[in-house]
Design a protein around this nucleic acid. Structure first.
Lengths: 225, 225
DNA sequence: CTCGTTGATTGACGAGGGTCAAATCCGCCA
DNA sequence: TGGCGGATTTGACCCTCGTCAATCAACGAG
C-alpha cells in the first residue's frame, strides 16, 4: 500500500474545507500529516486525548462504542472525503469511541490548533462546521429512534431502503456483522431476518447483494408491528 | 402565571450568549419574543420547520422522539438558562423531535437570522456554539451506549449516581414515567427495579426521593452482568 | 488441491423486559 | 373532608431477541 498524494489537493476536495481561502488551505495542508492504517488498526481509541481532525483519503473508518465484554456498538462510517474526530476535539474530554480502519486506510491528520485558528478568522468555515455537527446529531437521533421505538425487522427494512440502490438491488457496504452492530442486532438475528424476508419473497440475498423484489410491499414492513 | 421579565438581563445570564458584545446582546434581546406554555404544551413538534432558538426562562422542557403508537423516547431536559432548538435550526430540515413543557413554562424565542448574524461577526460565539453542539453529541452517544450495551439495572444505577446528591439522597427531577422513558424502560420495569434495589437494602425510595445506602456497593451493580 | 481462517448460517434454549389489566397510592380541589 | 384523576405499583403472561454451540461457506496461502 504505497500512496502518492497531494495533500493540499485532497483537502481542497474535502467538503469540510470548501470555504477556506487559498492561504488558509495551504496552511492546513502544511500542518497535515499522513497516517497509514492497516485493516483493524485504530486511528484513536476510547480514553485517548483528542488533538486534531482526521480526513479519510483512502479506505473506510468506523466509529464505535466499545464495551468491557468485547461487544461494540457501531455509530458511523467514514468514506474518502469525510472528516471525523472534530466533535470530540471541541470538548476538552477524552474520546469515548474507537475509530477503526475497516480496510487498509490512509488518513490526513490536522492539528486542532490549526482548526481553531481557522474558526477564529473564517465565519463560513464555522458555519459549515456547525452544520456538520448538526448533521451528526441528527444521525444519532435517528439511531436512537430506531433502537428504542422500532423492532429489529423495522430497523433492517429502514436500513436497506436507505442504502443507495441500482435499480432494485442494494448491497451491504461492509460485513454483515458490522452492519448488524450498526443496527443494534446480533449477527444471528440479522441472518435470520434476511432469511425470513427471503422466504416471504420480499428480497433475495446473494452475499452482500440484496435484491428488493417489491419495494413498496417491503416498505410496509416499516409500519407493521 | 404572570411573569415580569427583563429579556436582556435574562439573555445576559444565559451561558450561550456569554460572549456577546453589548450591542449584539441588545439586538438579540430586541428580537426576542416571550412564549408562555402551560404544562404539556409544545414549543415545537416533529415535522415543523425550525426558525429560531429557544431559551428557558422559567419551567422545564423535555425533548423527545414521538412514535406513531403513542410511545416516546425522551432525549434531554432543559432547565432555566438552557437554550434548545439550535441544532436543528442549523439543518434546513424539519424538527424530528417534540419539545414539550413539563410544567408551566416561559421561553424566549430568538429568530434564527439574528443568530446567524452573530455567527458571522463573533468567532467566540461560534466557538461556544460548537462546543455546545459537541456536548449534545456526547450526551447522545452516552445514551446510545447505555441503551445498547447496558442492562436496565445498569442504566438505572448510572442515572441515580449521575444525579446531584445531598449527602446520600437524590431525587427524580420529574415523574417516574418520564425518567423511565429517558432510560429506555417501561414505567413498570423502573418500578420493579427500584423495588428490587430496596429489597436488597441498597436504596430506599420515598416518592421521588431516593436514598442510596451504600454508594460504593451500589455502583458495583454497574459492572455486574 | 487442501488446509486454515474468517464470516455466515442454523438450531435449541432461555432471560430480560415489555404488555395488559387490576389494584393502590397520592395530590389537588371543591 | 371527601372524592376525583393521574401516577405508580404489582401480578401474570409471553414474545422478541440474545446466547451458545455446531456447521457451513468463502477465500487466500502454501
Amino acid at each position: 500500500m504505497a500512496y502518492k498524494l497531494d495533500v493540499e489537493d485532497l483537502l481542497a476536495r474535502t467538503p469540510l474545507f470548501r470555504d477556506l481561502s487559498a492561504p488558509q488551505l495551504a496552511r492546513i495542508a502544511q500542518a497535515g500529516r499522513q497516517i497509514r492504517l492497516s485493516k483493524h488498526r485504530f486511528a484513536f481509541r476510547r480514553g485517548e486525548q483528542p488533538n486534531g481532525v482526521y480526513i479519510v483519503a483512502v479506505g473506510n473508518i468506523k466509529l464505535a462504542i466499545p464495551s468491557a465484554d468485547g461487544h461494540e456498538k457501531v455509530l458511523e462510517f467514514f468514506a474518502p472525503g469525510d472528516a471525523f474526530g472534530e466533535v470530540v476535539m471541541l470538548l476538552e474530554q477524552p474520546y469515548m469511541v474507537d475509530a477503526q480502519a475497516l480496510e487498509d486506510t490512509l488518513l490526513i491528520w490536522v492539528d486542532k490548533r490549526e482548526i481553531y485558528a481557522v474558526i477564529e478568522e473564517n465565519p463560513a468555515f464555522s458555519r459549515h462546521l456547525l452544520e456538520k455537527l448538526a448533521h451528526r446529531w441528527h444521525a444519532l437521533v435517528e439511531d436512537i429512534e430506531a433502537a428504542n421505538l422500532q423492532s429489529a425487522a423495522q430497523r433492517l427494512v429502514g436500513f436497506l431502503l436507505s442504502q443507495p440502490r441500482n435499480g432494485d438491488s442494494t448491497r451491504f457496504p461492509f460485513s454483515k456483522s458490522i452492519i448488524a452492530s450498526k443496527l443494534g442486532l446480533s449477527p444471528e438475528t440479522l441472518s435470520r431476518l434476511l432469511n425470513q424476508f427471503s422466504r416471504e419473497g420480499l428480497i433475495s440475498v446473494h452475499g452482500r447483494v440484496v435484491v428488493i423484489h417489491q419495494p413498496d410491499a417491503f416498505s410496509i414492513q416499516r409500519f407493521a408491528a
